[in-house]
Nucleic acid binder design. Structure first.
Lengths: 194, 194
DNA sequence: GGCGTCGCTTGACAATTATCAACCAAGCTC
DNA sequence: GAGCTTGGTTGATAATTGTCAAGCGACGCC
């Protein structure tokens, strides 16, 4: 379900309380996913604050519950309530840092390295289980990683030489050390998916 | 001159009042410029707010004047002064939006398209003059655009077929319509350089 | 069951981009 | 002026990534 479309004025701050949302952007017929929003989290906070048009579009990925707060109210309460202001600015700074990491990931690493690092992170998130399952549709995953679905498919197979066994959406990390040798994860780039 | 290095704790908010600063990141021997800071502007604001390590390094590009404000003070005054808080959050939201645009630029466009759009923007910034000069070293420009210096050099020549004449750092846009046909600029992606 | 649709994979191929080495021109230093 | 250094360009080549088309298997629907 389409929630917002890039270019529209930002009338409401959105808060996701249940479900999942894909943030994406388009240009000249191309489309790229920029982030996945999971509860509880706001989105398009920056547009709300600056009273500027949305830069991204948003669709729900599943049945979701979303709270809409009029942007004017957000800006008004920001001036009245110091704790609210602090919460807003902390959230925004966190989003900013996540984006810087994404930018570094994209500009400094190859597609294979990005994928390898994602798998390592997924494993951490899964509590270290050897077998994990990809959290979303591969097409979307590819877009988030900045590659095509075909390239993801091939790259996933190529990681077999680096301690990864793939079967559909199920992935087994058979040799974490080998994968880390390829991925070279860094806390200054790799982010919790949140 | 090296101002900050990624990974270090963020003790000071930096404010550039004169000169120019390059923000870049490194990983495994690779290096990529993420932004150029021009006066008057803050940098590493998000790290200051979250009291988290720097994600980027910063070097001066020329003789510069930089004001350092202890991060604790920034966080304290944020709670005491509503106008200050509003200014901070507006600045941060602006940086965030600039970064989203950069991300879209990188993920949705080819190197040639990114370069073409940059030239168009430079011309606007130069008040529409037919002849403009590239604002920084080509090597850094290439890095900002997410490509190698060699690729920039070749792509610049390739733009001759699209209304661009190049002579070293001087660029003449001879056919803006043709260049726009290739570049397809969009206010939802292309940003003032600030 | 038969038949679409959909997501994913694979193959063949092309475009894009990077790498490496050589070279050039300008600006310095001695 | 000779020799360095530096930033930029060019050529040859390779690696990476994308495109297009076909095929496969699972699923839902009639």
């Amino acid at each position: 379900m389409e929630l917002i479309t890039e270019g529209e004025p930002s009338d409401f701050l959105h808060v996701l309380t249940a479900g999942a949302v894909d943030l994406f952007a388009t240009w000249e017929g191309r489309r790229s996913s920029l982030a996945t929003v999971l509860p509880v989290s706001t989105f398009i906070l920056a547009a709300t604050i600056r009273d500027a048009p949305y830069l991204m579009s948003a669709v729900t990925l599943e049945k979701s519950r979303i709270v809409l707060i009029p942007s004017q109210d957000v800006r008004r309460v920001f001036g009245e309530d110091g704790d609210f202001a602090r919460a807003i600015v902390a959230e925004l700074a966190g989003c900013y840092r996540a984006l810087v990491k994404a930018q570094k990931n994209l500009k400094l690493r190859s597609a294979q390295e990005r994928l390898a690092n994602l798998l390592l992170r997924l494993q951490v998130e899964a509590g270290g289980a050897a077998e994990i399952s990809l959290p979303f549709e591969k097409r979307r995953l590819a877009s988030l990683l900045g590659m095509t679905a075909e390239n993801l498919s091939r790259t996933l197979r190529a990681l077999r030489r680096h301690g990864v066994a793939v079967d559909g959406a199920r992935v087994r990390i058979t040799d974490r050390a080998a994968l880390e040798r390829l991925a070279r994860p860094s806390p200054l780039i790799d982010d919790p998916l949140t």
